Simulated assay, not measured.
Amino acid sequence: MPRDQHGHLTPGRISAQRPVSASIARPEYVGKAAPAPYDGGDLYDADEIEAIRRSSRIASDAITAVGEAIRPGITTDQLDVVAHEYVTSHGAYPSTLGYRGFPKSVCTSVNEVICHGIPDDTVLVDGDIVNIDITAFQEGVHGDTNRTFVVGEGSAAAVDLVERTREALNRGIKAVAPGRQVNVIGRAIEVYAKRFGYGVVHDYTGHGVGRAFHSGLIIPHYDAPQYDDVMEVGMVFTIEPMLTLGGTEADIWPDDWTVTTRDKSLTAQFEHTLVVTERGAEVLTTY
């Protein structure tokens, strides 16, 4: 089991990349070192929004399938199998697979891993928390979502962190309205998180999504007035707060993906893809 003597995660063994049928359309970046520059904007018409909704639903339902498989004794690589098979069996491409060289179809971020954990032979044990992040690409658009699960019986601190991170996402969504700057989202999240003394990760943010996996639009999860893009009806983006039980300083593993809290404190995350409407926001990655 790839953990050290303190129970903290260490890199595990990564299995071979799983194949995707040639009949499934790939994002343009697959097989390349990086995506092509994107300048298509973040506003979408009704037909495009419906396509993003369909991709988003595949991603969300795939997470539900993975969640049903989570239990003590399963490996994160086995969870990748569930995610990969669900997404591809529904005619979609798992967006992380081949994105800037990422080797798997889902990110599995356990305990102190903030984000971008690579599925491997790590065995989940009772009391772990694990974030499952899945994006599906279909009809030329991506839908992106994640949820954090408690494995077996978690501590009160872990359960509270998970539930309060879910609520932090809800608070961020409620702040969405046309005419407002995107920084109000982070302000709402940070005010809520600080009630419990949680750390709010700054270095990883929400983003524009749809025609591009990451459009360049930044959605902060903290009070950041420098991000002053104004929300408009038809704008599509993610909100995905990452909260910790301790500090927010981070380390990145040699794989150049796995991000952990430096103090090894637990961290949780939830994410939705949404569209700005005249009345606020509509979540596209419903479950």
Rank of each mutant, 00 (worst) to 15 (best):
S15W: 06
S15A: 09
S15P: 05
S15E: 13
A16F: 08
A16D: 15
Q17T: 14
R18N: 03
R18L: 13
P19C: 00
S21Y: 15
S21R: 09
A22K: 10
A22Y: 13
R26Q: 14
E28S: 12
E28V: 09
Y29M: 04
V30F: 11
V30K: 06
G31S: 00
G31R: 04
A34T: 06
A34V: 11
P35S: 06
P37D: 04
P37C: 12
Y38A: 09
D39Q: 12
G41Y: 11
D42T: 13
L43I: 12
D45R: 12
E48N: 05
E50F: 09
I52K: 01
R54P: 02
S56R: 02
R57W: 07
A59F: 10
S60H: 03
S60I: 05
S60N: 06
D61S: 03
D61Q: 03
A62F: 07
A62T: 11
A65V: 07
A65M: 14
G67F: 09
G67S: 11
R71S: 12
P72H: 07
G73Q: 00
I74N: 05
I74E: 00
T76G: 07
Q78S: 12
L79W: 12
D80L: 04
V81H: 12
V81N: 13
V82M: 12
H84L: 01
E85Q: 15
E85H: 15
E85G: 03
V87D: 08
T88Q: 07
H90R: 09
A92Y: 07
A92L: 04
T96Y: 11
L97N: 06
G98F: 00
Y99V: 10
R100F: 09
F102N: 15
F102S: 08
F102Q: 14
P103C: 13
S105P: 05
V106A: 13
C107V: 03
C107Y: 09
T108G: 03
T108I: 01
S109E: 06
S109W: 04
E112W: 04
V113S: 06
I114G: 06
H116E: 01
G117A: 02
I118C: 04
D120H: 01
T122M: 01
T122W: 10
V123L: 03
V123R: 04
D126F: 15
I129R: 08
N131H: 01
N131P: 04
D133G: 13
D133S: 11
D133N: 15
I134M: 09
I134H: 10
F137P: 10
Q138R: 14
Q138N: 11
E139P: 01
E139C: 03
E139H: 15
V141S: 08
H142D: 14
H142A: 13
G143L: 02
T145M: 00
N146G: 00
R147K: 02
F149A: 02
V150N: 14
V151E: 02
V151F: 00
G152E: 03
E153Y: 05
G154K: 02
G154Q: 01
G154Y: 03
